[in-house]
Design a protein around this nucleic acid. Structure first.
Lengths: 121, 121
DNA sequence: CGGTTCGTACGATACTCATCGTAGTACGAG
DNA sequence: CTCGTACTACGATGAGTATCGTACGAACCG
């Protein structure tokens, strides 16, 4: 039985805020941690969803779980179990509809700052 | 001696980060508190600078001072003493140069959310 | 079944932060 | 010089959070 024909989530379910429950302050707070901003940038760099474990963060597994939960509870990412893996995807549509352009400008700002700091010059 | 002929700041000086020292995470963190977001919105609504005391925040004066300091230390506002008053102005140029469009999208997002929450419909 | 991998839950710790009240300083007006 | 206004500094407090290690659970592979 091919994996892609099974139900996407095999049991465990995660709490996600509705679109209407997402708060700007919460989203900004989620973005304001370097670790989480990095996660969001990585997630934005690909189109689909990413396994939790592809992120190479300089913190322990527990801490990584914590940061993903903050992102989820503030409506930034959607998480779903797929076998033993937990897939993560940005909630692009919800964010764009609530706060047009915000994700884009933040990502661009993060990119600019990364370039700026990378070149001591 | 007319007040407007004296130097703008009469002695006390405040610490401000250079443009190059402003960090995106810090700016986002400064924005992520409802009280501070309100201050930024009020400040953006006028062109010039605003006295601290025109803000009618539902917190004590000590707390207000604290929030203004966070905004200043993260490079969001420029503060200067003018007599007994402390004037506040957004650092529009610095923010725009570092993170183009960010201030605008955040302000628009805040406006949208305010309208959305005001109408329970 | 047993083992492996991936992620969670829980408890602990140390740090940050939003808030307050009180006391103090700087400035301008009288 | 004295008073009032505007804001700060300091200390306290309660809540949140970033971090960890260890122990557990759920799914897959033999």
């Amino acid at each position: 039985m091919p994996a892609q024909n099974r139900p996407p989530s095999s049991g465990r379910s995660l709490e996600h805020p509705d679109r209407a429950e997402i708060r700007l302050e919460g989203v900004l707070h989620a973005f304001s941690d370097p670790m989480r901003l990095q996660i969001v940038r990585d997630l934005a760099a690909v189109e689909g969803e990413l396994n939790c474990s592809v992120f190479d963060l300089p913190v322990s597994k527990s801490t990584t779980t914590h940061h993903f939960r903050v992102l989820r509870e503030n409506g930034v990412v959607r998480q779903v179990y797929r076998g033993t893996a937990k897939m993560n995807a940005l909630r692009r549509d919800d964010l764009e509809s609530l706060f047009p352009g915000l994700l884009g400008t933040v990502l661009e700002a993060a990119g600019r700052q990364a370039s700026r700091l990378a070149v001591p010059s």
